[in-house]
């Protein structure tokens, strides 16, 4: 049975789309047939991060309005055979998203795919509500910073109250916490919330910590999900997230600030 996973956060700019792109890529690299849907109608950027911007002809809203078939709108990823992208529309507004329409498309996708990753827009308006409504599991993307944590808390409340599973009284959505843009150094200096602070407040299981890294920005700019950059710490951390999601038990990495070696301490660096 296909699983619908929403990647959401409440707050903008915390790394939802980066996470969606790398997470979906990671699932596909493990042999799962995966589609990632951009729910940010009007402000699409998943296709940019996935590097398929120029191949967008039809989009999510076209399919919702029966102006194109799913087959026409789905874009096959260049690197990953099992990965498809359903891009958002640049020109429509979020009112185009209807519950019936989204449900129809998800049901159609469920027939072909193992995982459906929904990249939620920021905020708690219609696009975000539609992205999470049909979810079976959720990745909550949070920066170790007070307002991001607060907004994630708010989104968790919405997941447990307004999602289809909550409304129907089914088993609740399985929630996973992804802490992004984590800087061990700044935590040590007391400038950033610690992992424990965030975990205590949100009280949901942590599935991964993605360290702040320059490679995320350069990956985004070049349109290649950072999980492909296996030399970068954030790429490795995303790979860990995917493994843990698939049930592999891995210890958390990249939580400590890099200690300078004895030589570099003596000679300066």
């Amino acid at each position: 049975m296909a699983k619908v996973i929403v990647v959401t956060s409440g707050k903008g700019g915390v790394g939802k789309t980066t996470t969606s792109a790398s997470f979906a890529t990671g699932l596909a690299m493990k042999g799962n047939k995966t589609v990632v849907i951009d729910f940010d109608v009007g402000l699409r950027n998943l296709d940019l991060i996935m590097g398929c911007e120029r191949r967008v002809v039809y989009d999510f809203v076209n399919v919702l309005n029966n102006e194109a078939s799913l087959k026409q709108a789905l874009i096959k990823d260049k690197q990953c055979e099992n990965l498809f992208i359903l891009p958002a529309s640049q020109t429509r507004d979020k009112d185009a998203l209807t519950e019936e329409g989204v449900e129809r498309i998800l049901n159609e996708l469920k027939e072909d795919f193992d995982y459906i990753v929904c990249d939620s827009p920021a905020g708690i308006e219609k696009g975000a509500l539609m992205a999470l409504y049909f979810a079976d599991e959720a990745l909550i993307v949070t920066n170790p910073e007070v307002s991001s944590v607060r907004d994630s808390d708010r989104i968790l409340g919405i997941l447990s109250a307004k999602s289809k599973r909550a409304v129907d009284g089914d088993e609740p959505i399985k929630e996973h916490l992804v802490i992004t843009r984590y800087s061990a150094k700044r935590v040590e200096m007391g400038e950033m919330l610690s992992i424990d602070d965030v975990k205590d407040l949100l009280s949901i299981p942590l599935i991964g910590v993605i360290p702040e890294s320059e490679s995320v920005l350069s990956a985004s700019n070049s349109g290649v999900p950072v999980i492909h950059d296996i030399d970068s710490t954030s790429g490795q951390a995303y790979a860990d997230v995917v493994d843990r999601f698939m049930g592999v038990n891995l210890p958390l990495r990249f939580l400590q600030a890099e200690k300078k070696g004895l030589l570099s301490r003596i000679f300066g660096n």
């Binding site: 607060r150 907004d151 808390d153 708010r154 968790l156 409340g157 919405i158 447990s160 009280s203």
Partner: peptide
């Protein structure tokens, strides 16, 4: 029994 979250 569930956490009461921001906005609830």
């Amino acid at each position: 029994y569930q956490p009461v979250r921001s906005g609830q």
